[in-house]
Design a protein around this nucleic acid. Structure first.
Length: 885
DNA sequence: GCATTCACG
DNA sequence: ACGTACGTGAATGCG
């Protein structure tokens, strides 16, 4: 299929210039804008595989727009020389890439693109316009999509008429009217003073166009009417200026834009000349991907079979040789998901089996195969598959390669780890989406069997194509072992833990609920009485009105939408008014009631009387797990009232115990290891209280002189170090000035010099490589590490410091889980691993195994990975989770 | 669907 | 000058 990409060259190079930090090659030539442009270009090539490409540039200073309005684009800063010198460089590079460039004297890039898109519309060609200029949205149509860059050029958002309607409630052409009313300071287009986006949209929703607004001013009132009437002419002029001219006498044709793929032979030397080392790797990747794509006969027919009692004899003998299995289900919670169907394939034929068919006697052999670990299976999200099949009374074993997990390891920050999301990175096209096939939300409906079969077989085919590509990438990124020896085995263990579940004492929970209910009722009554009115206490908006408007309390902090009323603010307000303390108390109990009592009650299984969470292995960017339905990783512990919730979690067998073991200071121990800081290592070798030790060093005092305040400060500093410290963050946390915080940090780094070096080095390394890694080689890319925007860059820098620490800690406990699972099996123990809470593992243990487990668990956890400092795990047990403290 | 708040490590 | 601590999920209100 043909695919055209038209790039607004001036717009993109400007954006790239301002988004990137200054960058020069060794001969002093500025290259940052070209660099930014090229990264975006490579991404476009990877994502869209265009067959035709063209970059349009402005030519000449005076365009036809200046006729009649000389101020057009007046007041605009002169192009900085650092950018000017990059235009010829970019053009040369584009030539090396084999990409066409158009410019025409007297016209802007907009107009060239406007003309081409008009022609595309007439010819029914699919075109993507890439620009940073919102005005271009006016060109959108059924055939023309506009890709707007955001955050410099690092993100792209696609707009068609539908998206424009959703975002603005306007048709593409009405974008011109929008600009006519709003104006645009950067182009010196006046618009109507005092009318911004909001007002302009309101007017257009009411009247439809600039002309209609102007001829109906009688319907307006006040200031607005006055302004619009006085500036009617400005509005008309602005609209004219904002209109892209679409009749440029352009002699070029589509054939002049043919793009035959990147020619590595010419592109690579051009990048090398600019000293874009990282882009050279990227280029190789893009080219490789393009090749992979070329190797994919996209619309290749596949042979599909709907398995029936009549034809199953054909399938059964093939089973031992099958590897790829796709299981489709519906519903977010896999424990309650409905099975839609499964596909098995030997890559010759694709066999689709309905849930009904799968449970017939004829399919006994298939079920046996599914549950036999001797037959390795490859598919998408096999952890979920395991749970879904289990929920539907079917076995599963033998997960060998999971495309979902591999996709996560290869880019853990990509939030679209769907099969199609992963596939698109390898240029594997999809023909349809889940939403298209099944319908969305309330419109969900299973189409006829044949359609489901074809679609799911196509998924199975995609899985089969992805596997070798991902295997290669895992190898190349050094994550092969992490994948096969850690994440894959762990996914089976997690499924076991989830199926096992943890027993919940419903009566106990309900009793807690009535306790909370009473407290809440009396608090609410008291609050209404003091406020002198009833209102919705759960609405921050209404609460804000009471506190700040009615009672006149000082506003401490604001949110985007109004007053902030979070706990931090309320703590500060408490001395002013007695109501505040009650509100704080209400908040905390209401949270316990809604999330932990009512929420948990809903999640206790009727069948098992247990809570079966769903650990997600592909969400957290650092490699941690997350937990859903319910989240069992945030059960209260810090405050006694909430901690009581833990009494509800009990062993599932008579006379068993709950045993919990948690790593002591795992993150700081990891830091000691990776920073190789002698002082920090020494502290852990001697198993000192790390916060006290930090206080001694930072304040330069003896252990006996460390008071609770000093220890508290030192603890905050230690937290800050792990999070990627900033003086601002620390000052907020300790309620001190930034200067004082900054001094603390200096003092810390003076005694922990190795830590300072690690922090400096890891940021440098991230800037160079574009990613950081954990001890086990888990990767996280940080595309914003070189951003010019301070916030984005700082965020990335802190992430560069935090991820190796948090991520390595995550690696370690995952290792411990794999080892622990093996130990339980090997020693033939009845004890079961139930939960993981980042640095803690929870088990249920029969009385007779208590002594063994008290030794075994900390030992296995401690030996999970050998570091330069000891890893320590502390164990405790009791009749419920509360008592295991 | 997004914002706010708050529970955890 | 810039103005955030790192990583999550669930409940609630509101447009």
């Amino acid at each position: 299929m043909e695919k055209f990409i038209l790039i607004d060259g001036n717009s993109i190079i400007y954006r790239a210039f301002f988004a990137m930090p200054p960058l020069t090659n060794s001969s002093g030539l500025h290259t940052n804008a070209v660099y930014g442009f090229t990264t975006m270009l490579l991404r476009l090539l990877e994502e869209h595989k265009p067959t035709h490409m063209m970059v349009a540039f402005d030519a000449g200073k005076v365009t036809f727009r200046h006729e009649g309005y000389e101020e057009y684009k007046g007041g605009r800063q002169k192009t900085p020389p650092e950018l000017s010198e990059q235009f010829p460089v970019l053009k040369e590079l584009l030539t090396a890439f084999g990409i066409a460039q158009f410019e025409l004297s007297g016209y802007e890039a907009d107009d060239i693109i406007g003309t081409l898109t008009k022609r595309a519309d007439e010819a029914g060609r699919e075109v993507l316009v890439v620009t940073g200029d919102k005005d271009m949205l006016q060109l959108a149509s059924e055939n023309v999509n506009i890709a707007l860059t955001r955050k410099g050029v690092s993100e792209i958002e696609n707009y068609g008429p539908k998206e424009i309607e959703e975002r603005y409630g306007l048709s593409p052409l009405q974008i011109i009217d929008l600009k006519g009313l709003m104006g645009d300071p950067s182009d010196n287009i006046p618009g109507v003073p005092g009318v911004g986006e909001k007002t302009a949209l309101k007017l257009l929703h009411q009247f439809g166009s600039v002309e209609e607004v102007l001829s109906n001013t009688s319907e307006l009132k006040g200031k607005m009417k006055e302004k619009i009437e006085t500036h009617a002419e400005d509005a008309r002029l602005s609209k004219r200026l904002a209109t892209i001219y679409r009749e440029v006498p352009l002699e070029k044709t589509w054939d002049d834009m043919v793009f035959g793929g990147i020619q590595e032979e010419s592109a690579a030397p051009a990048l090398a000349k600019l000293e874009f080392k990282s882009l050279l790797d990227r280029l190789a990747f893009t080219v490789k991907q393009a090749d992979a794509n070329e190797n994919t006969p996209e619309e290749e027919e596949i042979e599909t079979v709907i398995v029936t009692e009549e034809n199953i004899a054909e399938l059964l003998p093939l089973l031992p040789g099958m590897k790829i299995v796709h299981v489709e289900s519906r519903g977010d919670n896999p424990h309650h998901a409905a099975l839609i169907g499964i596909v098995l394939t030997d890559r010759e034929k694709y066999y689709f089996i309905t849930p009904e068919m799968l449970s017939t006697e004829a399919c006994a052999g298939v079920r046996e195969w599914l549950g036999d670990a001797e037959y390795p299976k490859q598919g998408y999200d096999l952890h979920r598959v395991d749970l879904v099949l289990h929920a539907n009374g079917l076995p599963f074993a033998g997960a060998d390669f999971d495309v979902h997990l591999a996709g996560y390891l290869l880019d853990p920050t990509d939030s679209n780890q769907t099969l199609w999301g992963v596939a698109s990175k390898y240029g594997l096209a999809r023909l349809q989406s889940d939403d298209e096939v099944f319908g969305k939300g309330a419109k969900y409906k299973l189409p006829e069997e044949k359609v489901v079969c074809e679609y799911l077989c196509r998924k199975a085919e995609t899985i089969s194509r992805l596997i070798p590509l991902q295997q290669k990438d895992l190898e190349e990124t050094g994550m092969h072992e992490l994948f096969y020896d850690l994440e894959m085995p762990l996914s089976r263990i997690l499924a076991d833990m989830e199926k096992q579940g943890i027993k919940a004492n419903v009566d106990e929970l309900k009793a807690l609920g009535s306790e909370f209910e009473q407290t809440i009722a009396s608090l609410v009554a008291k609050i209404y009485e003091i406020a002198g009115t009833e209102f919705n206490l759960n609405s921050p908006k209404q609460l804000g009105e009471i506190l700040f408007d009615k009672l006149g309390l000082p506003v401490i902090k604001k949110t985007k939408t109004g007053y902030s009323t979070d706990a931090e603010v309320l703590e500060k307000l408490a001395p002013y008014h007695e109501i505040v303390q009650h509100i704080l108390e209400y908040r905390s109990i209401a949270k316990l009631q809604s999330t932990y009592v009512e929420g948990l009650l809903k999640e206790i299984s009727d069948k098992t009387g247990k809570v079966h969470t769903y650990y997600r292995q592909t969400i957290a960017a650092t490699g941690r797990l997350s937990s859903q339905f319910p989240n069992l990783q945030n059960i209260p512990i810090r405050l006694e009232e909430g901690r009581k919730i833990r009494k509800v979690f009990v062993p599932s067998e008579e006379n068993w115990y709950i045993l919990a073991a948690d790593y002591s200071q795992i993150e700081l121990r990891v830091l000691a290891h990776i920073s190789d800081d002698d002082n920090l290592k020494e502290a852990f070798v001697h198993d000192m209280d790390i916060h006290t030790k930090t206080a001694m060093d930072v304040f330069g005092v003896e252990e006996s002189a460390v008071d609770s305040n000093m220890r508290r400060s030192a603890k905050a500093v230690n937290f800050g170090i792990v999070y990627g410290i900033s003086d601002y963050g620390l000052s907020q946390n300790l309620n001190i000035t930034r200067k004082e915080a900054s001094q603390f940090i200096e003092q810390y780094f003076d005694v922990f010099k190795g830590v300072r070096k690690f922090m400096d080095d890891i940021v440098k390394q991230a800037k160079q490589d574009g990613y950081v890694t954990t001890l086990l080689g888990r990767r996280r890319y940080l595309p914003e590490i070189n951003a010019s925007n301070f916030n984005l860059r700082s965020f990335a820098e802190r992430t560069a410091m935090n991820t190796p620490i948090q991520g390595t800690a995550a690696d370690i406990i995952k290792l411990a889980m794999v080892h622990m699972d093996a130990a339980l099996t090997e020693k033939n123990l009845k004890s079961r691993m139930l939960l993981q809470v980042h640095d803690e593992l929870v088990f249920e243990v029969p009385e007779e195994e208590l002594e063994i487990m008290k030794e075994l668990v900390p030992e296995v956890m401690g030996k999970a990975l050998e570091l330069a400092v000891p890893l320590k795990a502390e164990v405790s047990f009791g009749r419920n989770w509360y008592e295991a403290k």
